[in-house]
């Protein structure tokens, strides 16, 4: 079985925007992957004029929020620029004990990488920079800049949502049979990784070693 990987476009967000952005993206993915019976729930973002869809599954919602809390926590403690959340879907295979010791195996069939570039205000170097990470600047131009930045983010988020839709549309063959549970997604896990630019690849690599490379599992 193939593991399809989707790297979503990186978004420049501010700290306070993380929650909404992640909710929007994660739930949109889940809506396409919770293939049991769902009663969709429309949610309007507060910061952006975007409506996304939830599965209407309270359990799932709770878990997503927990993960987001976790993520925000981590961003706060380790203010790295680049942050990544990976949503992976897998199948659980009870492997017979052969030469390998694992009893339960996760067969990853899909991974979504959400890339966030979180701006941190207190950083001194970001004072008047032209970078998209925006700073709390009490001046007049700051407001304009802020609005412009917000608009940019909104349109980027919009793009990401369409990226999800396109991916879902194009890749359908790798999806395992629908589990016989109502409204519940395929088994999934959400992992968080944040690191500085240089260590980023290393982190990924480590994670790959831990979980096993997807293609090795098929």
């Amino acid at each position: 079985m193939n593991c399809e990987v989707c790297q979503l476009k990186e978004l420049d967000v501010e700290y306070f925007e993380i929650r909404e952005v992640l909710r929007c993206i994660l739930h949109t993915i889940f809506f396409h992957r919770a293939l049991g019976l769902v009663r969709p729930k429309d949610v309007d973002l507060e910061l952006f004029e975007i409506t996304y869809v939830q599965c209407g599954d309270a359990e799932l919602e709770k878990k997503v929020d927990e993960k987001i809390d976790q993520f925000i926590d981590r961003v706060e403690k380790h203010p790295n620029k680049k942050n990544q959340i990976c949503l992976s879907f897998f199948e659980v295979k009870n492997k017979q004990a052969t030469w390998f010791t694992h009893k339960v195996e996760h067969l990853y069939w899909e991974q979504w990488y959400i890339n966030l570039n979180v701006a941190h205000h207190p950083k001194p170097h970001s004072g008047k920079s032209h970078h998209s990470k925006l700073v709390l600047d009490p001046g007049e131009s700051a407001l304009d800049e802020r609005n412009a930045r917000r608009a940019t983010l909104e349109s980027s988020l919009h793009e990401v949502l369409f990226q999800i839709i396109k991916f879902v549309n194009e890749k359908k063959d790798h999806i395992p049979p629908i589990p016989n549970m109502e409204g519940v997604s395929f088994p999934y896990e959400i992992t968080i990784s944040s690191s500085s630019d240089s260590a980023f690849g290393m982190d990924m690599f480590k994670r790959m070693l831990q979980t096993g490379h997807p293609t090795m599992l098929s």
Binding site: F31, H32, L35, V53, L161, I164, I165, V168, K172, P177
Partner: peptide, 22 residues
Amino acid sequence: YKKSILLLRSLYVTVRLLPGYK
């Protein structure tokens, strides 16, 4: 059936992302 579900989910989300939804 499975692919139809997926397509319809996409449709459901897309409908809400279009300007007409506003």
